[in-house]
C-alpha cells in the first residue's frame, strides 16, 4: 500500500489515525446510489447550509476526535473518547471539504417499503459536518484510507486494477447526463423578454451579431457589440451576449448568420423594432466530466479557439461550442496563455473541468482586434 499517495503513512491507516476537529452537527438527505459529482456537491452544500448557524449567530460545536482507518471512521468525544458515531468505511459514500469545513457522507439503506418497484433504490445519507483548520488534510487522509481499503479489496479478490480503471472513478462518461447551463437558463421565463426599440426611419439598430456556435443548445445569433449612441444601446435593454430569438415576429432560430444579418438590415426603414431576446452573460460555462485522462476530451483547440467537437463526446455533453474562445479553465484565465500551455492544462485536467468560453468573434470585438459591422 506504499504506493497510495496522501498525508498519512498507509500502514498507519490500517490501525487508524486520529485528527482533532469540531463537530457542528448532522443531517439526513435521501440520495440515489451513485449520484454524479455535481449532485454530490449540491448535497454537501445542502448539508453545510442546514447545519451552519446563520451569520452573526454563534455556532454550537463540540470538540471531537475523528478516528480514520481503512476499516471504519469513528467520531469520538475529545474528553472521554466515547464513540458518538461509528461507520464502516464501505458505508462512507464520499467526503467533501470546503474551506475549513468537512462533510462526511455515510449511507443507510431506506426500508424496502419506501421503494416503488422499478425505481432506483434510494439511500438515506447521514451527513456529519465538522470544522477544522486542517479540513483539507483530514479529507485527504480519508481519501487515502478509501484508496488503501480499495487496493486491499482488489488484492483479496484477485481483481486486476487495470481492468477497473474506468469503473473505480465512478460514472463512465457514457452514462453521464447532459450538462447544459443554457438549458436551465433558457427555461427560466425571467430571462426571456421582448424589447421594443424606437428609431428614425433609415437609421440602423446599431447591433453587431455573431453565431452562437455549433454545439449550442439554442442555435441563434448573439449580440456581439452595440454601437455607441445607437438606438439599441440607447434603449438600455440589450447587452452583449443576449440571444436574438426573433425580430418583429420573424424567428431567427436556426438561420445562417448571413440570413439573420439581412433580416435585421431590412428593418432599416421601420420606426419601431420588437426584439425577442434571452438575456445571457457574454461568457458561458461548460462543465466537462472526465473521470480519467485516458478519456478524450472530444474537442480540438487552435490558438485558444475551439475548432471542432466530437459528436456525443464528453465535451459536447458538457456544453462546449465550436467557434468559442476559451477564457478560463478551472477559474484560471487563459486569454494570454500560449497554445501549448492551454493544451497542457486541458490534457491534464480530470474530474470536473469548468471551462468558460465566449464566441471568438465577440472576444475579438471586445478586445478591439476586429471592427464591428453594425446593422
Amino acid at each position: 500500500f506504499k504506493e497510495v499517495p496522501g498525508p498519512c503513512d498507509p500502514e498507519d491507516l490500517l490501525d487508524g489515525v486520529i485528527f482533532g476537529a469540531k463537530y457542528l452537527g448532522s443531517t439526513q438527505l435521501v440520495s440515489e446510489r451513485n449520484p454524479p459529482t455535481s449532485v454530490r456537491m449540491a448535497q454537501a452544500q445542502e448539508a453545510v447550509d442546514r447545519i451552519k448557524a446563520p451569520e452573526g449567530e454563534s455556532q454550537p460545536m463540540t470538540e471531537v476526535d475523528l478516528f480514520v482507518s481503512t476499516q471504519r471512521i469513528k467520531v469520538l468525544t475529545a474528553d472521554t473518547q466515547e464513540a458518538m458515531m461509528d461507520h464502516p468505511l464501505q458505508t462512507i459514500s464520499y467526503i467533501a471539504d470546503i474551506g475549513s469545513i468537512i462533510v462526511l457522507m455515510a449511507r443507510r439503506k431506506l426500508p424496502r417499503r419506501t421503494e416503488a418497484s422499478g425505481e432506483k433504490r434510494l439511500y438515506k445519507m447521514i451527513c456529519h459536518v465538522f470544522h477544522s483548520a486542517d479540513a483539507q488534510l483530514i479529507a485527504q487522509a480519508i481519501g487515502q484510507a478509501f484508496s488503501v481499503a480499495y487496493q486491499h479489496f482488489l488484492q483479496v479478490n484477485s481483481i486486476d486494477p487495470s481492468q477497473l480503471r474506468l469503473r473505480q472513478q465512478g460514472h463512465s462518461p457514457e452514462d453521464e447526463e447532459l450538462y447544459n447551463g443554457d438549458l436551465a437558463h433558457f427555461s427560466k421565463q425571467e430571462n426571456c423578454k421582448e424589447v421594443c426599440i424606437q428609431k428614425q426611419k433609415g437609421e440602423i439598430l446599431g447591433i453587431a451579431i455573431v453565431e452562437s456556435g455549433w454545439g449550442s443548445i439554442l442555435p441563434t445569433v448573439v449580440i456581439a457589440n452595440l454601437m455607441h449612441g445607437g438606438p439599441a444601446e440607447k434603449s438600455g435593454e440589450l447587452s452583449i451576449g443576449d440571444r436574438l430569438m426573433s425580430v418583429n415576429g420573424t424567428s431567427l432560430v436556426g438561420l445562417p448568420l448571413s440570413t439573420c444579418q439581412s433580416i435585421i438590415r431590412d428593418l432599416k426603414h421601420q420606426t419601431e423594432v420588437t426584439l425577442s431576446i434571452v438575456h445571457c452573460p457574454p461568457v458561458t460555462t461548460a462543465i466537462i466530466r472526465r473521470p480519467d485522462s485516458k478519456y478524450q476530451l472530444g474537442f480540438c483547440v487552435e490558438n485558444g479557439i475551439i475548432c471542432s467537437l466530437m459528436r456525443g463526446g464528453i465535451a459536447e455533453k458538457g456544453g462546449i461550442r465550436v467557434g468559442h474562445r476559451i477564457i478560463e479553465i478551472n477559474g484560471q484565465s487563459v486569454v494570454a496563455t500560449p497554445h501549448e500551455k492551454i493544451i497542457q492544462i486541458l490534457t491534464q485536467a480530470v474530474s470536473e473541468v469548468h471551462i468558460k468560453t465566449m464566441p471568438a468573434s465577440t472576444y475579438r470585438l471586445l478586445t478591439g482586434q476586429e471592427q464591428p459591422i453594425f446593422l
Binding site: R33, N34, T37, R40, M41, A44, Q45, H87, P88, L89, Q90, T91, I92, S93, Y94, I95, A96, D97, I98, G99, A106, R107, R108, K109, Y123, Q136, A139, Q140, I142, G143, F146, S147, A149, Y150, F153, R167, Q168, Q169, G170
Partner: peptide, 21 residues
C-alpha cells in the same frame, strides 16, 4: 473556497447488507 469531493471507490462494491440499517 472550492468544494472538493472524494468518492469512496468501495461505494460501487457495497453489498446491500453492508449498508447500515
Amino acid at each position: 473556497s472550492a468544494l472538493t469531493i472524494t468518492v469512496n471507490p468501495m461505494e460501487k462494491y457495497e453489498q446491500p447488507h453492508q449498508a447500515e440499517e
